[in-house]
Amino acid sequence: MSVEPPHPSPLPARGERVPGVREAGEGRAIVELRDVHQSFGDVEVLKGVSFAVAKGGVVCIIGPSGSGKSTLLRCINGLVPIKSGTIRVADFDVHSLVTDRQRIALRKEVSMVFQQYNLFPHKTALENVMMAPIHVLNENRNEVRERAIALLTKVGLAAKRDAYPGELSGGQQQRVAIARSLAMRPEVMLFDEVTAALDPETVKEVLNTIRGLAREGMTCILVTHEMRFARELADEVLFTDGGTIVESGPPAELFDRPQKQRTKAFLSQIL
């Protein structure tokens, strides 16, 4: 479980446009990546990724498998250290976090939902939601309990609060996982292909949950294969391939008028 420290690296040249970064005066982006490089052994996974997400913004990352989408998300909450570049989330310089204590402070602000739900199988749905606020944020148990029940109600699972993850369907588990992340009251939510392991019918219930969050103004970064969803909800869509962002823009532009050949090819395959 050892983690190598990130290497410092020069910022990209001044004046280079970073997708998503608004002009000064419009408020600072809440998530900002500049020239992020990451490799596993000799395999370069990210080759200079830069983008930014405004507070309350919804960014969808699309692209073929193995293009580094999931790694990108894991870099943002410090699960995976980066080789070079900078990542800033709110006031945290993620690339320079060294100790566990620092990463824990970051992760209180950034929550992540996984493709395989990753609920704690020995705890009920309600306990799954309550655990982190009680033990990590040291909040009052009764308050947390009320909030957890409210969150489960919000994702439509109040009746299932005493069920164990093994007794829930994939879609239900994923909604509990979303509630669990929300219970931390994060600033930013990361969704890593959260519908990829679900059957088509339950995809909808999970997407509805995320749609509700986005509309309430939660900052969301989603890796997804749900193109229609991305088109409807995203402020900006990033198309990644081979560890770089090939093209980015508002969904209407990227989906309807892709500029790059690679984007066209990818979209023609899946749309």
Partner: peptide, 16 residues
């Protein structure tokens, strides 16, 4: 290891 990842992303420390 996904259990470790899930716990880490909920800001649990290693001992917890």
């Amino acid at each position: 290891t996904t259990q470790w990842e899930a716990a880490a992303s909920l800001a649990f420390n290693r001992r917890q």
